[in-house]
Computed example of a mutant assay.
Amino acid sequence: MEDYPLIEDHGLIGDLQTAALVTTDATIDWFCCPRFDSPSVFGSLLDRRKGGHFTVRPVADTYTTKQLYHPDTAVLVTRFMTEAGAGEVVDFMPVTGTTATDRHRLVRMLRCVRGSMTFEGEIAPRFDYGRKPHELHISEHGALFTSEDLDLAVHTVRAPQDERLLSILPGDNDDLRFSLSLRAGQQRGLVMESAPGGPPHEVRLEEFERLFDRTVRFWRSWLGQSTYSGRWREAVERSAVTLKLMTYAPTGALERVSLICSSVDRMCLSGG
């Protein structure tokens, strides 16, 4: 279908209670919350006009992208290259544990690796498959989307007493737009949280990095239990992580969501 990304052009992230699909240009176009079988919040994979999305992209006339996983983890890296520099969007979901919860965090870490880069993006949720309206409330430290059945907070990230590099503005249809200008070595981002239980707040950069480190440690510890050491080790381990991402931790059941299954089939075959 014209203007729709192929299923194979996605990475998968999750916290073992739900999951999100991320395109190779860093758009989240499928995300159900708070569980795998919940209604979608982002669903532009199925309906580009009404489905909802969470986009991030560099402000540049032309750019190239490359997507890969942080080694031995379910942390996804989308790398952008422009004439002015190189930057990354690092996506992951901190694992929530084995007790069912409505609280889930989707972390989008934005980095400038070389030169300079200005990112821009849009958060356009469409609750209950786009059937239920929402309201946007912007505060000093982020934003809150409220709907009939689910609230989503967007927390901003900043180092203590550092300049506010991230700017957020209301968009059309109570959506949220943001922009962020970084120099080489700088890192900021957003944490989107469901059922937050309070207003948006600033996430300290140190806590941001701890979330990343804990998520990396979890996946490497889990994968470290594997005893396979054959010639297909990389493909087998990537397939194992992908299947683990589809497991609902409170019951141990393997979710059979058709869209995610199709993505998994492709990723396992490619070793990606």
Score class of each variant (00 low, 15 high):
Gly198Pro: 10
Thr247Gly: 09
Asn173Ser: 10
Phe42Leu: 10
Leu110Asn: 04
Pro170Val: 08
Cys32Thr: 03
His10Tyr: 06
Leu12Cys: 09
Ile168His: 05
Leu16Ser: 15
Cys268Thr: 12
Cys32Val: 06
Trp222Phe: 14
Ile123Arg: 01
Ser139Cys: 13
Leu152Cys: 13
Glu8Tyr: 11
Leu269Val: 08
His53Met: 11
Phe80Ile: 06
Ala86Tyr: 07
Pro250Arg: 00
Val95Asp: 03
Gly85Glu: 02
Glu2Met: 11
Pro125Glu: 02
Asp151Gly: 00
Gly11Ser: 00
Phe80Tyr: 03
Ala159Trp: 14
Val257Lys: 01
Glu135Pro: 02
Leu152His: 03
Phe92Asp: 01
Gly14Ile: 00
Ala124Phe: 10
Phe212Gln: 06
Asp128Gly: 01
Asp174Arg: 03
Met267Thr: 00
Ile13Gln: 04
Leu211Met: 15
Asn173Phe: 14
Glu135Arg: 04
Ile168Gln: 08
Leu106Cys: 13
Glu135Gly: 10
Glu207Ser: 12
Arg158His: 09
Val89Gln: 07
Pro125Trp: 05
Ala195Asn: 05
Pro200Glu: 11
Phe127Asn: 00
Thr101Met: 14
Leu136Val: 08
Val113Trp: 09
Gly52Ser: 02
Leu46Asp: 04
Thr73Asp: 04
Glu83Val: 15
His141Thr: 12
Arg131Pro: 05
Ala84Pro: 08
Val257Tyr: 07
Gly43Ser: 02
Glu163Gly: 12
Leu106Gln: 08
Ser263Asp: 06
Ser116His: 12
Asn173Thr: 04
Trp219Asp: 06
Phe208Gly: 07
Asp162Thr: 11
Gly115Ser: 08
Ala19Thr: 01
Ser116Val: 14
His134Arg: 10
Ala235Val: 13
Gly130Lys: 06
Met1Asp: 13
Arg49Gly: 08
Ser229Asn: 06
Leu21Thr: 00
Phe36Ser: 06
Leu259Tyr: 01
Ser194Cys: 11
